[in-house]
Amino acid sequence: MSRAALLVLADGRFPAGGHAHSGGAEEAVKAGRITGAASLEEFCRGRLHTAGLVAASLAAAAAVGVDAVALDAAADARTASPALRVAARKLGRQLMRAARATWPSGELDELARRFPKGAHQPVVLGVAARAAGLGAVEAAYCAAYESVSGPASATVRLLSLDPFDATGVLARLAPTVDLVVDRAVEAGRRVVGGGVEELPAGAAPLLEIGAEVHAAWAVRLFAS
């Protein structure tokens, strides 16, 4: 396993469409729930423990080879908001393209055949990690970190937040990311014997309601 492959996959510049998604931050900023670094941190913490943990667990399970179709259905059931399901599949499709070009693999080709319009992004992420020679831990780290880095960089653009403050938020969340990854990897491995019911199912009400509010706007900067 190449550790450097993790840096390639986790790089914010990895061309997989993430830059156009705010992870709910655009709506939360407009609604006045994110106003600066402190509220951004609370937003990210809430997202990390819910959508982030679910995503990291899905990615870990996919990285150890659990059937992607079952994981994708489990992701659907854990994502009540149709706007978020659409966003997850869009991002999944974009990641699939980037990953297939970067780490050609029969498993990624198979996934693309099975889900021409995209599987949930964390599932694709797990399969991409496998293709890159990475394991469950690395896949979970990518997913958990993305769940907070996306909103943080979007908030820099949305609020003209000091980028050092936003990066400070991510650094302060690092121990929580570690914790979430541990739980996600355990859950992902339990899925092998116990089925997808073993996956965490944490939901954040305002993330889902906010995603629907955002999708109803006529004019927006970010896709989600």
Partner: peptide
């Protein structure tokens, strides 16, 4: 026989952080 919804809400003291924040209950 198809799971259409599986979600967990955790809140209150001792729940994972951020439950009352801008992503959770606000």
């Amino acid at each position: 026989d198809r799971v259409v919804l599986d979600q967990e809400l955790a809140c209150g003291p001792g729940a994972p952080g951020g439950w009352d924040g801008p992503a959770g209950l606000g």
